[in-house]
């Protein structure tokens, strides 16, 4: 794939105080790519994903979206105006481990919220879009339910519908199945697989290595703040070249591809 990157990071660093979590990451995503990010607990996978839509502020480095650098540079210092960050976040949908649905709104209102508040769509129009997105994740009968009354798998599917409603160019998933009971993982992975078949550009942080193998076009092993090994699923998950990747995969034991 030799297209124009839609998302790019250059020498991205992130520190929390003295803790240097990301140590210079250069990364590109092209339209239609599906990237799985794996790595040990605390290695900075979530932090990396969260830097892309500025849930975390960068310590150093650049993020480029569709050929435009995010942030405004003036006299050597970069600022990030709220308005610009809001636009970036609108274009990068995010799905969280803990769903983060709004408990005081019905399922339908959760999915309509961004359309009405951010995209300034009329309520009837937003409703049509939201209903279509909920149908897509198989939750048409749950419109009027409170999110708190749904199973974890259903909640995560609502969260995916909410992210999709904004028509994002890229989807970011941060361990979308890690807080689900094992029997509910499948229904969420099926939805993600369906999105893959539509050719969407996606980044997925996951511990489900078997799923990552089938899902991804590119796999990244993150360790010690850098992309330690990058390649196709076969290269990274089946024939890793780096000793540290081999170690990591061994510790995960056998997983079925």
């Amino acid at each position: 794939m030799a297209g124009k990157p839609i998302l790019e990071t250059k020498a991205l660093h992130k520190r929390f105080g003295d803790h240097h979590v990301l140590r210079g990451i250069d990364f590109t995503v092209e339209p239609g790519e599906r990237v799985a990010i794996i790595g040990g607990s605390g290695s900075g996978k979530s932090t990396f994903l969260r830097c892309l839509n500025f849930m975390e502020t960068l310590s150093e480095g650049e993020v480029w979206l569709d050929g435009t650098r995010i942030g405004v540079e003036r006299k050597g210092t970069v600022t990030y105006p709220e308005k610009q960050l809001c636009q970036v976040r609108e274009r990068l949908g995010m799905v969280f481990q803990q769903f983060n649905l709004f408990p005081h709104m019905s399922v339908l209102d959760n999915v309509m919220e961004g359309l009405v508040t951010v995209k300034r769509m009329s309520r009837p129009e937003a409703r049509r879009v939201a209903e279509a997105e909920l149908a897509k994740v198989g939750l048409s009968e749950k419109h009027d339910a409170w999110p708190g009354r749904l199973s974890g798998g259903q909640q995560q599917r609502v969260a995916i519908a909410r992210a999709l409603s904004m028509q994002p160019e890229i989807l970011l998933f941060d361990e979308p199945t890690s807080s689900l009971d094992p029997e509910l993982v499948g229904e969420v992975l099926r939805v993600i697989k369906q999105l893959a078949e539509e050719g969407r550009t996606m980044l997925l942080v996951t511990h489900e290595l078997g799923f990552a193998y089938h899902f991804a076009t590119k796999v990244i092993f993150l360790a010690h703040g850098v992309f330690h090994e990058v390649g196709t699923p076969d290269e990274v998950l089946k024939n890793p070249r780096q000793a540290r990747t081999q170690d990591f995969l061994r510790r995960f034991g056998e997983f079925a591809f």
Partner: peptide, 14 residues
């Protein structure tokens, strides 16, 4: 914190 992040991720202003 997740409530702030859920809204922010949609592009909502403060």
């Amino acid at each position: 914190r997740g409530q702030w992040e859920g809204g922010r991720a949609l592009g909502m202003t403060h």
